[in-house]
Design a protein around this nucleic acid. Sequence first.
DNA 1: GGTGGGTGGTGAACCGGTTCAGTGAACCGC
DNA 2: GCGGTTCACTGAACCGGTTCACCACCCACC
Lengths: 332, 332
Amino acid sequence: MARRRTTIRDLAEHTGLSPAAVSYALRGLHVSPETEQRVRDAADELGYEADPIARALAGGATGVVGLLVGSLSDFWNQDLVRAVQRHLYDGALSSLVADADGEPARELELAQRLVDQRVDGLVVVPIGPASGGWSAIARQISTVTIGDALPGVAPAGEVVFDYEHGVLQSLQHLSELGHRRVTVLSWAVETSPDREAERAVARSAAALGIDCSVVPCAYSLNASRPLAVELLAGPDRPGAVLCMSDSIAYGVYAACMELGLSIPGDVAVAGFGDHPISRLLSPPLTSTVWDVEQVAERATGFLVTAIAAEGPQATLREVIAPVLAARASTLA
Amino acid sequence: MARRRTTIRDLAEHTGLSPAAVSYALRGLHVSPETEQRVRDAADELGYEADPIARALAGGATGVVGLLVGSLSDFWNQDLVRAVQRHLYDGALSSLVADADGEPARELELAQRLVDQRVDGLVVVPIGPASGGWSAIARQISTVTIGDALPGVAPAGEVVFDYEHGVLQSLQHLSELGHRRVTVLSWAVETSPDREAERAVARSAAALGIDCSVVPCAYSLNASRPLAVELLAGPDRPGAVLCMSDSIAYGVYAACMELGLSIPGDVAVAGFGDHPISRLLSPPLTSTVWDVEQVAERATGFLVTAIAAEGPQATLREVIAPVLAARASTLA
DNA sequence: GGTGGGTGGTGAACCGGTTCAGTGAACCGC
DNA sequence: GCGGTTCACTGAACCGGTTCACCACCCACC
């Protein structure tokens, strides 16, 4: 089984150079072209592969970034993981994935654990700006947030969803269709009363003069389904449900199937994120497009430049504009 | 920014012990209870956290396992990643995720890269048994495969899908409904002619006396959709399409929407995996249940025991029995 | 012919843990 | 009172790289 790795000292012996020279040669530093070639040849011959662990211990960087997702049960997030993954691969980085599984408390714990594992950077898709610990994390390590901006934290980069306009657009759409009572399903509001999305809901509802109540819900089909059953089977069913993620909307679809309600006849449904599945449902789901590829590309771009930069820099920022895709789940 | 970590030598100085004693104490080895307590107190006081990098370099184990997925665009695989993730977390392991993105060549390259990164073990959801390099990998490191068994490879564990019965069941179901011409969408057959699933198709078709052709297709909605359009718009449309993954079936749904074909009226569709989305579509998709949680639990269980075991052991093996969930996408 | 400035390379320390051989003291039985 | 264990702990080497201080050498220049 796996005999001892060939080390840099083996190469040194083989080439008659010092370990230091070999180390430099392998990275093309400070050495003559002939020496470099000699070392490379020896490396091929002996099947040498640098040990990233040792390199990390000595040098500092691990080449690994942490990818922390608030809820990996959410389809949009799953897709994002795939996309970020691919971009990191192109940047020769690996990713340590962690799933907070909808629990804000676990989120910070996992972040700390990733930091302890010496990742070079962190991509966070937070549940919400609940906990204060983030600023400490962001100070220790290059961090890029996606979705919600974490107030009071100055991360290396943020890819922010423009909830202000996104929610307004959706509610306006529903309002124009005659809906006066809308229920919004969003993260557990009690843990993050300041969440941008929910403030946006309140403002938009006021502006449009509609009656909007926010019900907390985890971002997954399994979580939203029973909640939606309860909500829609109750005495005063809302005319429309706006879900802060498509995954939540899927649970609402399941609930409607179970209750025998028709969409949009009995209840109109809209989501956020526009997952590929959404246009496949019947009726196709009205949603707001947050393009996964674009988000992933920006986020990894920010992270890579932040890691390359020496000291702390100004926060790199991109606001993702909302584009409403109106489909039959709201249209009559 | 991040001042120097407190090291084991800081603790040694603080407690008046040797670094070695501190190292033992932190792991509860060879030391008196009082000493152990003294060290723990000092660790709390100074905020000591062991550096996993250094520990890995010296000791061997990294506490990280590689999770290599043939196609992270596949919904079932995405869900599996989430589930495996969670079980690994419970086992205090972290996971480095890698996505071969449907390319068999990349798969082995990524596996090797994970091995080079010194993961303690590997969970592989392979594209197919195409390449021969796997036995070398499995010899180097504890490996658990999911789905397809890799012929000629003796991994530490395998969680195998019983394609023989699964495919037979599905085809029998279609046959009983009167279908005589079935197209099967499966992995690129040319790269893996020996794949168990495809051999099963041939045998089952022969046994049932139906006409079955296998068309290669990557496991994703985006890949299957154009393929299905081509297939279904052609002159001799098959009466039924059996997809080796639900993701593929979703692409077929999209194609049917595009072409204005009705399911199952114009074409019957069945999938594999039974992703939660499948019962939400209309018509709900007939599929064969491979329970993600069960698979994840077994696979991680196998891996953990394999890592804990000293030498190579006999292959741990679990066969996942197929359960057909017949729904309206095939039923009239 | 001495001074000066690059090159190309070396030796040793270092990163932060683990581990192994060894040491001194306490304890045991006889 | 003495050989033999056991126990708690130490010192030093080690894992496999990187990096820093230093040196030898060659060439140029005045």
